[in-house]
Nucleic acid binder design. Structure first.
Lengths: 160, 160
DNA sequence: CCGAATTAAATTGCGCGCAATCGAATTGTG
DNA sequence: CACAATTCGATTGCGCGCAATTTAATTCGG
């Protein structure tokens, strides 16, 4: 079952015991991979004036919704672990955007909170989202369908 | 769940015409971002027995289709640059999967070719793709629609 | 021809992303 | 209470991914 139309160059002989690998451009994984990088390349120049990387922007999205969360909470929301988040949060703390301190009741937990500077960046995020939405070139319905399909795929893969 | 004291929303009043940022889970960029990482997490244990990372696997997908390509060709097909590909290809060369040598006619070019070992891995790639296809939990039609939408999005973002 | 502009890779530096491991704190069990 | 198991975060090591710069080869303009 091919995902896209038959590619021009490669001709598959009638299926042997093991099928030969699908060509690159027919594979869903590469469509996701390359779209993710393309998206990151759009965000990068928009976030640079805010002094943010894309993952740092995601952390702020969480904190703007729910301030004062643990590293574990952040990780479960962003699907990242402490190996990624700890140094990232330290850089954000050094930049004055968040504070990190141990929970007094349970000293295993590190609670992450917004500083006024981190909270202030919220105002400039709307323009970033708007710019990316325009750049996507998709209408709202297509974006919605894409969003649902990707979320379903991600959650399906997670269980596996 | 903390008691919600009203945050000092000086900023909301400051720019009333700009909408507040969408929540994380509503954003297409995060759906793509998290789906890409989920996909990578599925591939990793499947590729590990082959001694491959996912980007290395993508390089092989290109070479299995078209052997003997330049680094630049690889980059344009995978949307990667030499800063990523050069060390990656050196690791693949060290692993005995590809050879890298300067084009005799134009010494600026580095031509990448499969070794017998690299070519042999092709047989084991079909099983990997099959396993991922099953893990996705999507039917062929949904995968096809997703593939088309992502490719359109990626190419739309590229021009921007 | 010769020098300037262009092109292709390599290199450097930095920020993820994750597996594996560790140490400290907490919880569970007898 | 003791003590094993669990949980959380930090740390280490490695492989991307990309911007910026460098070096070498080629092409172009005069």
């Amino acid at each position: 079952m091919r995902i896209a139309e038959k590619p021009p160059t490669v001709t598959d002989a009638a299926s042997p015991c093991l099928p030969p690998p699908l060509p690159l451009d027919d594979q869903l994984c590469f469509a996701i991979y390359s779209a993710a990088h393309a998206m990151n390349r759009v965000y990068k120049p928009l976030l640079e004036p805010l002094g943010l990387t894309y993952p740092q922007y995601l952390v702020l999205l969480v904190l703007w919704q729910t301030d004062d969360v643990t590293v574990k909470d952040l990780g479960s929301r962003l699907f990242l672990d402490s190996g990624t988040l700890t140094p990232l949060l330290k850089r954000m703390e050094a930049a004055g955007l968040v504070t990190r301190r141990r929970d007094t009741a349970d000293e295993r937990l590190v609670r992450v909170t917004l500083t006024p500077d981190g909270r202030a960046l919220r105002d400039r995020a709307g323009a970033v989202q708007q710019a990316v939405g325009c750049a996507s070139g998709l209408d709202a319905a297509a974006m919605g369908a894409l969003h649902r399909a990707l979320t379903e795929l991600r959650d399906g893969l997670k269980g596996t």
